[in-house]
Write a protein that binds this DNA or RNA. Sequence first.
DNA 1: ATATCAGTGGAACGAAGCATTCCGTTCCAC
DNA 2: GTGGAACGGAATGCTTCGTTCCACTGATAT
Lengths: 216, 216
Amino acid sequence: MPNPAKASGSSGRRAQAARNDSAIVDAARAVFLDDPKAPVSAVASRAGVGISALYRRYGGKEDLLRQVCHDGLRRYLTEAQESLAEEDGWQAFTSFLRRLVDADLHSLTVHLAGSFAPTPEMAADAARASELAALVTRRAHESGRLRADFAAADIVLILEGCAAVRFPDPERARLLRRRYLALQLDGLDTAGPAADGPELPGRPASEEELSRRWRS
Amino acid sequence: MPNPAKASGSSGRRAQAARNDSAIVDAARAVFLDDPKAPVSAVASRAGVGISALYRRYGGKEDLLRQVCHDGLRRYLTEAQESLAEEDGWQAFTSFLRRLVDADLHSLTVHLAGSFAPTPEMAADAARASELAALVTRRAHESGRLRADFAAADIVLILEGCAAVRFPDPERARLLRRRYLALQLDGLDTAGPAADGPELPGRPASEEELSRRWRS
DNA sequence: ATATCAGTGGAACGAAGCATTCCGTTCCAC
DNA sequence: GTGGAACGGAATGCTTCGTTCCACTGATAT
């Protein structure tokens, strides 16, 4: 019987297996974030392991997808709860959206759903996520800063829109998504808060960045 | 030699061929709008014709894609020009965006690009499209109603975001995209124009509409 | 009247991509 | 030293899809 105590170092078969555990989920998250239909082999090669290392851990592609998506959903819940810790309702609302957009949690959950059979636990977590979104929205409304005709269901539109901003460089993508989110929060019309509010973060996409996307 | 004069009616081989011409491009537009990677057979069956009717007209899938995309690009140009007929720069700007979003021209152009080799003429039209977008933006800035830190390149973000709003029912999708666009134009903060501006059009997506998307 | 052939539907073919399995190898744990 | 957990990656079988091919139809020209 293997003795875990002797394998706590950074070398050894057991340690490599542990490292592979996280390397595989990390790779899966990155790969499926980029393309929900990516082949399993892409995950393996990105993780720097063979295919068997992956199939030893998961019953199949669906298992892996489910894992990645459920991780994302759990992260969604914790981010939502943390944002609710904000005193001000409007601050909680903006913080909520910024957290979700920064971590690309919409891509990690909604865009992956449908490619696997959800577990009952996932369904429960998804319902909980809906409740939290409604709660954040209610508090924002109560603060008086959120326009009255904005509904909790509209959050999905915003998240979907931000998730649609895709760039080869993840860092650039995140910055542009922040810019886009800020645009939506502030409004475009100078008769609005833009007149004396903060400027948009980051720079607009350059002509070159934009045109490169016509090739890939 | 065939006599066209005798085939001007709504029946006859020649007339059916003419009807198929448009049936095929119409089907291609609808199908590829929904899924840029859809199989050629899906286009044929949606058009209600066999595969050969399609291959008689186009050298291959790439030709068809190119045609649909170039049509979209030309439509983009005419819509842009028509919106520029507006007197007010801000009106021209909003009208420009509403037209593009209504016709889903972003999906029809950018989302299809990359799946075929563009013709020189297309490249020229694309450049012209960029110029027009820059012009619309400049006029909006001159009108004073567009926030100063908004750049022409940001238009793509908005279009991308609206195009990402997808629903099984095209009519519902268009309405929600309008709602989303209005949201961006008006801004969310009640300290902004939302305080006394018009309400958002349409209803928010219902819980049921939203959750249905988790299955497909 | 009838020969012709543009136009067509759809089966058939072959290539490509992919999930999954299998097998030989490595090297830690005992 | 040895058993076996863990691994890499080739092999397999299946699905999907673009394209070709062929038999058929019926309008047209003579």
